[in-house]
C-alpha cells in the first residue's frame, strides 16, 4: 500500500470512530491502534489477574461463612474479568501465551495498586470500597469505547463490579459499627489505601502522554484529573457515613467549585511502585510465575488426554 492510500484509510477509520461506529477485529486499523489496544487491554487483563492475589490472601481467614463466600465469588469474578479481557485482546492477533510471557518477564505492567499488602481484614473492605470504586470510575466510560470486543467485555465487567464495591463497603460499615478496636482497624485501612487509590486513576493530565489520542479512540472520555475528582467527590461522603477520616489535612469542600479540594499526591511513590519498588512487586510476580509454571504439567496432561480421545474417535470411525 502506498503512503497516500494508508493516509486515506486512516481518515476513513478516524471518521468511522467519530461517528460512533465500532471497530471489529478483522476491520482494517492503523498499526498504532492495534498496538495501543493490545497494550492497554492486556494490561487491564493482567490487573484483574494479579488483583486476585491480595484478596486471595484472606479467603481462608474471612471472619464468617457469609464473608468467605462473598470474597470467593468476588475473586472468581476478577478471574472472569481477566479471561474476558485476554480473549478480547487475542482478537487483535496476540496469543495468550505471549501475553503471559510479557507479564511474567516484567515487560507488561499491571495496576500498581496491587503491589500493596493486605495486612488486616479491614484491607479487604477498603479494597472493595476504594479500589473497586476507582476501577468502576475508570471502566464505565470504556463500555462505549471504539473497539467492539473491548466494549462488550467492559459491559460484562461493569455489571459485575457493583457487588464488589458493595461487599467491601459493607465490611467497612460492620467494622465501623463494631468495637473501638475494629473501628481503628477500618481507619488504618483507609489511611493506607486512600492515596494509592487516588493514584490508580493515573498520572496528572500534564504528565499523561496518551490522553489526546486516547480521547479520539474513545479509550478515554474524561481526563485522569477529572476522574480523580469524581472519585473524591463521591467517596468522601461515604467515609463520613462510616465515621472515619480521610487522611488528607487539605481535604475541604469548596462551595465555589462544587468539588472537594485535596492535598498533594506523592507521585514519587507512584513511580517507585510502577518501576517495581513497591512493597509487594516481587512477591506478586513470583506467585504468578509459580502458578503458571507449576500448572504446566496439568495443562500438558489435559492436552495429552484430549489428543488421545480424539485419536480414539478417529480409530473407531475407521
Amino acid at each position: 500500500m502506498s503512503e497516500k492510500e494508508v493516509k486515506n484509510l486512516e481518515e476513513i477509520f478516524e471518521a468511522k470512530i467519530a461517528r460512533d461506529e465500532k471497530i471489529e477485529p478483522k476491520d482494517w486499523m492503523p498499526e498504532k491502534y492495534r498496538k495501543t489496544h493490545i497494550r492497554q487491554m492486556s494490561q487491564h487483563a493482567h490487573s484483574e489477574i494479579v488483583g486476585m492475589l491480595p484478596e486471595g490472601n484472606w479467603i481462608t481467614r474471612a471472619p464468617s461463612l457469609r464473608r468467605k463466600v462473598a470474597l470467593l465469588a468476588k475473586v472468581q469474578d476478577e478471574a472472569g474479568h481477566g479471561l474476558y479481557l485476554y480473549s478480547a485482546t487475542e482478537t487483535l492477533g496476540i496469543s495468550r501465551d505471549e501475553m503471559f510471557e510479557q507479564l511474567h518477564s516484567g515487560k507488561a505492567k499491571y495496576s500498581s495498586i496491587f503491589n500493596y499488602p493486605t495486612i488486616t481484614w479491614a484491607d479487604i473492605g477498603a479494597i472493595g470500597w476504594l479500589v473497586d470504586g476507582a476501577a468502576i470510575i475508570n471502566q464505565v466510560p470504556l463500555c462505549n469505547t471504539s473497539f467492539g470486543p473491548y466494549a462488550r467485555a467492559m459491559v460484562r465487567v461493569c455489571k459485575e463490579e457493583s457487588f464488589h464495591q458493595r461487599q467491601g463497603y459493607e465490611i467497612m460499615l460492620t467494622l465501623c459499627n463494631g468495637t473501638e478496636e475494629q473501628k481503628q482497624m477500618a481507619q488504618d485501612a483507609l489511611n493506607r489505601w486512600w492515596w494509592p487509590s487516588l493514584m490508580m486513576l493515573g498520572p496528572t493530565d500534564d504528565a499523561s502522554t496518551h490522553t489526546e489520542q486516547s480521547m479520539k479512540w474513545k479509550l478515554k472520555r474524561k481526563t485522569n484529573d477529572e476522574l480523580r475528582q469524581q472519585f473524591i467527590d463521591q467517596t468522601v461522603p461515604q467515609a463520613d457515613i462510616l465515621g472515619i477520616t480521610v487522611p488528607d489535612e487539605d481535604l475541604k469542600w469548596n462551595e465555589e467549585t462544587g468539588h472537594y479540594d485535596f492535598g498533594k499526591i506523592d507521585w514519587d511513590e507512584f513511580w517507585q511502585v510502577v518501576k517495581g519498588h513497591g512493597p509487594c512487586n516481587k512477591e506478586r510476580m513470583q506467585t504468578r510465575v509459580n502458578a503458571w509454571e507449576n500448572g504446566q504439567w496439568v495443562r500438558d496432561a489435559a492436552m495429552a488426554h484430549a489428543d488421545k480421545q480424539a485419536d480414539k474417535k478417529v480409530k473407531q470411525a475407521v
Binding site: S87, A302, Q309, A310
Partner: peptide
C-alpha cells in the same frame, strides 16, 4: 508437549425463545 490449548468460541442462549448469541471465547483442551 508445550502447546497452547485451542481457542473455542462460546455461544449462550439466555433463555428459551431467544437464539444463542456469541458471548466471547476461551481456551480449553477439548
Amino acid at each position: 508437549n508445550k502447546k497452547e490449548w485451542p481457542l473455542f468460541e462460546v455461544f449462550v442462549r439466555s433463555k428459551n425463545g431467544l437464539e444463542h448469541r456469541h458471548f466471547g471465547s476461551l481456551h480449553a483442551a477439548d
